[in-house]
Amino acid sequence: MNAPRQVKRIAVLVSIGRHPVSGAPRYSRNDAAALELGRDLAGKHGARLAVLHAGDAADPALADYLALGAGEVEVLACAEGTDAARVLAARVEDCDLVLTGTRAEGAYDTGMLPYRLAAVLGRPLLGAAVDLDIEGGRVAVRQFLPKGLRRRVDAALPAVVSVHPLANVQPRYAYARLREGAIRTAPAPHVHDDAAQNDAAAWTLGAVERKPVRLAAAEKRSGHARMLSATTTESRGGNVVNGGTSVEKAQVILAYLREHQLIDY
Rank of each mutant, 00 (worst) to 15 (best):
H192W: 15
A201Q: 10
R184S: 04
M1A: 12
G244T: 11
Y173C: 02
D64A: 14
V153M: 03
R184P: 00
S229D: 09
D194I: 01
P189S: 10
R226K: 07
S162T: 09
I183G: 03
R29Y: 02
T232N: 13
V213M: 02
I253R: 09
A118N: 04
T204H: 15
A104F: 01
A63L: 13
S15R: 14
F144C: 04
L99Y: 05
G238R: 02
R214K: 10
A50K: 00
I16F: 01
L125R: 03
I16A: 11
K147R: 15
D264G: 13
L35K: 07
A57E: 11
M227K: 12
R142W: 02
G69I: 05
D133S: 15
D109V: 13
G238S: 04
R172N: 10
R184G: 05
L62Y: 10
Q197G: 06
I134M: 03
L35I: 06
A200E: 03
D64G: 14
A119P: 00
L132E: 08
K8W: 01
A61P: 06
P187G: 07
R214P: 00
A54P: 01
A167D: 01
V191T: 12
E180M: 03
P171C: 11
A202W: 02
D194H: 08
A24I: 08
A79Q: 14
G122Y: 04
P158D: 08
L66V: 00
A156L: 06
D40P: 05
P20I: 10
A89T: 06
A155T: 04
V141S: 09
R221D: 14
L166F: 05
V98A: 01
A218Y: 02
R48K: 06
L215I: 10
L97W: 07
A186K: 01
V160G: 04
K147L: 09
R103N: 04
D64Q: 12
V87Q: 11
A84N: 07
G106I: 11
G55R: 13
V75M: 08
P20V: 08
E259G: 11
A33V: 07
E72T: 15
T82L: 10
A195Y: 09
V208R: 13
A70Y: 01
S222G: 15
D264I: 14
R9W: 02
Y175T: 02
Q261A: 15
A77V: 15
R258T: 11
L262W: 01
C95M: 04
G55I: 13
T204G: 06
N198Y: 05
Q261M: 14
A57Y: 15
C78F: 08
R138Q: 14
D199L: 15
A84Q: 12
T102V: 06
D193N: 10
E259D: 15
A176C: 02
A195R: 12
L88W: 12
G17T: 06
G238K: 04
A128I: 07
D199E: 12
A90T: 09
N168G: 05
A250K: 13
L113H: 08
A128H: 05
P124I: 07
C78D: 05
A159L: 11
A186R: 09
Q197C: 07
R214S: 03
V51W: 03
Q251G: 01
A216D: 09
D31Y: 04
P158Y: 09
V191A: 12
D96V: 10
